[in-house]
């Protein structure tokens, strides 16, 4: 007998033993489905944005802790406000080797452009976190609170103050429209390509305010260039670590506290293609649970001041359905629906 065969037999034995041991300790992994080839992680947005950063962080964590036997690759499909990515997953019905991270364009893109897809074409896997939105102004301006600022916008007259935001008819513009609706002011909304650009435009005083996500503006806040006025959530952000010499995320009041009753949170969640088996879904749920337990993930959450709400299964699907209904209402009110004349 060839010595090599015996070695490899022995190897098989060991790995079988390990699998057996594994079965005892982590039942969810050993039984059921496992990826058999490279998993594509679709990002329906460009490189460098919030969704992209999160996807690449997950990819890195998975690789570092060896959480998956097969490699995971991040692929950006930003075309048509993300429609490219969603259509790709939609058309891969039953393919368990494709997951997609969503931002609000899961709802807004089909509504605003009429591109035929809906979250119901996909299988919800897990909500990872919710992204906060904060109303920012340049630190050189005199506005100390949302109230001051809204009063100033009112005083300047309709359309005189600029709100910078990411994309058109997406989350930033929806929030702007909601503010306008609550307060009766009128902004001129200027769309830019990415959140980082918006923050820099605000630092350079080319726009008067922005509703940047925390992670997009935090560096400029810490650098003393931007000032947060309020956060569009029902509760304050829980992170109490000091970000500037005087303030932590927790010190930013909610917009409701300052009399501006607008709330908006953006979904950072994972979906798969339609028609996948429950086994396959639970594999990714388990994987993502492990990702969420790592210190790298926790650091990312704190850095971006994310709302760490997480859901799975039916609860998640219900949440998405509710969020969709809210988006339809908001977009209808703002006149952003496809074919709707403003």
């Amino acid at each position: 007998m060839n010595p090599f065969t015996s070695v490899s037999r022995f190897g098989t034995l060991i790995s079988a033993g390990a699998a057996l041991l594994g079965a005892v300790t982590v039942p969810a992994l050993a039984q059921g489905w496992q990826p058999t080839k490279t998993v594509e992680f679709i990002v329906p947005a460009g490189t460098g944005g919030g969704a992209d950063q999160m996807a690449r962080a997950i990819q890195g964590i998975v690789a570092k802790y060896n959480l998956m036997k097969q490699p995971m690759v991040v692929i950006n499909k930003r075309g048509g406000s993300g429609a490219e990515g969603f259509l790709d997953v939609k058309s891969s019905k039953g393919d368990p080797h494709k997951i997609i991270i969503t931002l609000s364009n899961l709802f807004t893109t089909p509504l605003a452009t009429g591109v035929p897809f809906n979250w119901r074409d996909l299988t919800p896997v897990k909500m990872l976190a919710l992204d906060e939105f904060v109303l920012w102004v340049n630190a050189d301006t005199p506005y100390k609170s949302a109230k001051d600022y809204i009063a100033a916008v009112k005083k300047a007259g309709p359309g005189k103050m600029n709100m910078g935001g990411t994309g058109s008819k997406q989350e930033d513009q929806i929030i702007t429209a909601a503010i306008e609706k609550r307060t009766g002011v009128k902004f001129t909304y200027i769309p830019f390509k990415g959140g980082g650009t918006v923050a820099v435009q605000l630092v350079g005083k080319h726009v008067n305010s922005s509703v940047n996500n925390p992670i997009e503006a935090v560096a400029h806040w810490r650098g003393g260039k931007l000032r947060p006025l309020c956060v569009f959530d029902t509760q304050r952000i829980p992170y109490k670590e000091k970000m500037t010499s005087t303030m932590s995320w927790h010190d930013i009041p909610t917009c409701k506290e300052t009399g501006l009753d607008v709330n908006y949170l953006m979904l950072r969640g994972i979906f798969m293609a339609g028609g996948v088996t429950p086994d396959q879904v639970s594999y990714y749920i388990n994987l993502l649970r492990k990702v969420r337990e790592t210190s790298e993930w926790k650091a990312l959450m704190a850095k971006g001041a994310f709302n760490q709400t997480s859901m799975e299964g039916q609860e998640y699907a219900d949440w998405v359905a509710k969020a969709e209904a809210e988006h339809i209402a908001l977009m209808k009110a703002a006149g952003f629906m496809a074919g709707q004349k403003k």
Partner: peptide
């Protein structure tokens, strides 16, 4: 840039 952020470095005026 994504790399910097993940390693806990924050690009910005304070870097």
């Amino acid at each position: 840039l994504g790399g910097l952020l993940i390693w806990g470095l924050e690009p910005g005026p304070l870097l």
